[in-house]
Design a protein around this nucleic acid. Structure first.
Lengths: 163, 163
DNA sequence: TTCATATGATATGCTCCTCGTATTATCTGA
DNA sequence: TCAGATAATACGAGGAGCATATCATATGAA
């Protein structure tokens, strides 16, 4: 709460905050465009890659959990997983000693990552170069900001979904 | 180039860089999920909202230019613009004194913004509170980082699209 | 236990979207 | 002047998303 009502410093601060939010929206849009190109190369849909990332990041998940997280219909998730499985990006596993024998675990296939990595290599090296221009402390500040913004996005999405 | 090969500082720095990139991917994904919820509320497709943002940000554009920017087929753009126009989010205008009389200018409708703003209000206030925790200098550092990352994404996308 | 109900995953069918191609109008250059 | 390129859109084929149905399994109450 450092802004001062009506003061010059407060006005400038608000402008900067707006700039941050706008840059964030534009960045999201641009990264989605990048995702779109990568998806097209793999003959996948954009949403397929989104789900693959969720699976890779948050471990083995059930289709229904995944559908809830992605805000999609369970039947839609079946189609998405079919495409990902056909492409060899994921496997569906029945866990015999699971508490619920109806449940299925979806797991990302290691070894296909190199292929993905190659498509993202342009962005990856550009980001490495960009990060090179910042100090360690600055990078940690940025990473923390990104994490908190993600958390804010998560909350906002959940609020919107359930209301 | 501040990293030192093999040194402890270099290792830590690489870890932080990786953390930044990973946070960025996760943030993109989460913000796309938010976009998905907002789109659903407006009975629009995710890509419609993406295009609307491009139109609003980069002024009046022709459908073909927009299609190229979004990496979509021109015929697909016609469908997107039909939906956006039917919803009253954009207008198609023929400019009589334009150099090219085939060209059409697509313009975002002012006045619908409040509606959009309301759907994003949760995220918006959360971002305001998040930004409140940073100094003016820190915010400017973050904004600049986001802009450069966007630029990097733009280049990487273009490279991928034309190769 | 026994049964009603809920839930997980998927199959089916309908609607709508995307994209290749064709069409029409217009521009550009030889 | 006219052949070819380009802008926007129409049209049709193939496919995606979702509501619903289906089947197996789980859960809770009597």
């Amino acid at each position: 709460m450092k802004s001062v009502r009506g003061g010059d410093a407060g006005r400038r601060r608000r402008r900067t905050t707006v700039a941050v939010k706008q840059s964030l929206r534009e960045l999201r849009n641009q990264l989605s465009l990048l995702n779109h190109q990568v998806s097209a190369r793999l003959t996948l849909k954009d949403v397929d890659l989104d789900c693959l990332e969720l699976i890779a990041r948050h471990g083995p998940l059930s289709p229904s959990t995944l559908a809830r997280r992605a805000g999609l219909h369970p039947a839609t998730m079946t189609g998405i997983l079919d495409r990902l499985q056909k492409g060899g990006w994921i496997v569906r596993e029945r866990n015999p000693d699971s508490a619920d024998r109806r449940a299925i675990a979806v797991r990302a296939v290691r070894g296909r990552n190199a292929e993905l990595f190659r498509l993202y290599s342009g962005m990856n090296t550009a980001m490495d170069e960009l990060c090179d221009g910042y100090s360690e402390a600055e990078l940690e500040l940025i990473a923390e900001f990104l994490r908190r913004a993600t958390e804010a996005g998560h909350t906002a999405t959940a609020d919107l979904a359930e209301s």
